[in-house]
Design a protein around this nucleic acid. Structure first.
Length: 290
RNA sequence: GGCUCUGUAGCUCAGUCGGUAGAGCAAGGGACUGAAAAUCCCUGUGUCGGCAGUUCGAUUCUGCCUGGAGCCA
């Protein structure tokens, strides 16, 4: 049995995953693009040893903060684990908020091995767009989306359109956790405050002092803003507000993905009565497995 | 008390030489195959502080009232 627990940041996915893992004797595979990195603990809301409740968690702390980890690596690594667990008849709970990683793990996404790393810095957006159009006349990547245009040009192999109908490869029950938007935003805001009070500044400062500056730092919300603060470009309050804002924006994007990319059954999370939510989810899973 | 500036979208502000307004951010929706906690797309009617005057017509000019900021006493 494979269960995927999805939803925006801050809804309680970690807690739900552990509860379900205990219930079904399952192991957990994390599906989070930032929790794969070591040393990014507080800011990524990584599960603590205590929260794990001795459930086995995979795909957390698997690479160096300075490493360049991507969906390509994730798919390879996570599938290896998933296949092994499935073969051993062990139940699996996949939890995480990184939609693309989840999809790459469970659907027929295919990535090529890239040898040469081409640079496209000499081209304008329009030129890149034309280049993509030549390869794929049905291209629907927007001209302004340079990042994706470059990515397409780097990764496509002649005559194969990157886009394929995505097909689910593993029989999976998708559980989505949600709550009213306003409530979620309040939870996110106060969670950021808790992180700050819980040692996030110290964690980020020690990375900063060690000149840690990989892709992870540039991408991860909280770290990139605190680096701006350490550099003197932002006040502490300004940085904290930015972290909150970007976390909220991120949560909204997560909803868009999970609502439209996969068939998710949504459950409203009751903050003061999480057990009720757990029971609802469990009874839904029971029905699905009949 | 006097002088000056100011009150326009949830926020910061533009603007209309008089014909009822527009950006950024927020917010909402969407896309997504190697940065994905990323990147990008779409969506802007709001008594233009209140009342009155001038005018065919005022958010725009004038007067008064009122909220805010500063300077002088």
């Amino acid at each position: 049995m494979i269960i995927a627990v999805v939803g925006p940041t801050g809804v309680g996915k970690t807690k739900m995953a552990v509860a379900l893992a205990k219930k079904y004797g399952a192991q957990i595979i994390s599906c989070d693009s930032m929790q794969v990195y070591k040393k990014l603990d507080i800011g990524t809301a990584k599960v603590t040893a205590k929260e794990k409740e001795s459930i086995i968690h995979h795909m957390i702390d698997i690479c160096d903060v300075n490493a360049d980890y991507s969906v390509y690596n994730y798919q390879k690594d996570a599938r290896a684990i998933l296949n092994k667990l499935v073969a051993s008849n062990i139940n699996v709970i996949i939890v995480g908020g990184t939609g693309l990683y989840l999809k790459a793990l469970l659907y027929n996404y295919e990535f090529k091995n890239i040898e040469e790393k081409r640079s496209f810095s000499e081209f304008t957006n329009e030129e890149l767009y034309e280049m993509v159009l030549k390869i794929n006349p049905n291209n629907d990547i927007h001209v302004n989306n340079r990042q994706r245009l470059e990515s397409y040009l780097k990764n496509h192999n002649k005559d194969d359109g990157i886009k394929k109908n995505s097909e689910l490869l593993y029989n999976t029950v998708f559980i989505g956790l949600t709550m009213p938007r306003e409530k979620l935003y309040n939870v996110i805001d106060s969670r950021v405050d808790e992180m700050i009070n819980g040692g996030l500044l110290k964690e980020a400062k020690s990375l900063y002092d060690n000149n840690t500056s990989g892709k992870s730092i540039k991408t991860a919300i909280a770290y990139k803003e605190l680096y701006e603060y350490f550099d003197g470009n932002l006040s502490l309050d300004g940085a904290v507000d930015l972290i909150k804002k970007r976390s909220r924006n991120y949560a909204k994007r997560q909803y868009t993905w999970f609502k439209n990319q996969m068939n998710v059954k949504w459950f409203n999370v009751l903050l003061n009565d999480f057990n009720t939510t757990i029971n609802e989810v469990v009874s839904y899973i029971q029905i699905q497995n009949k």
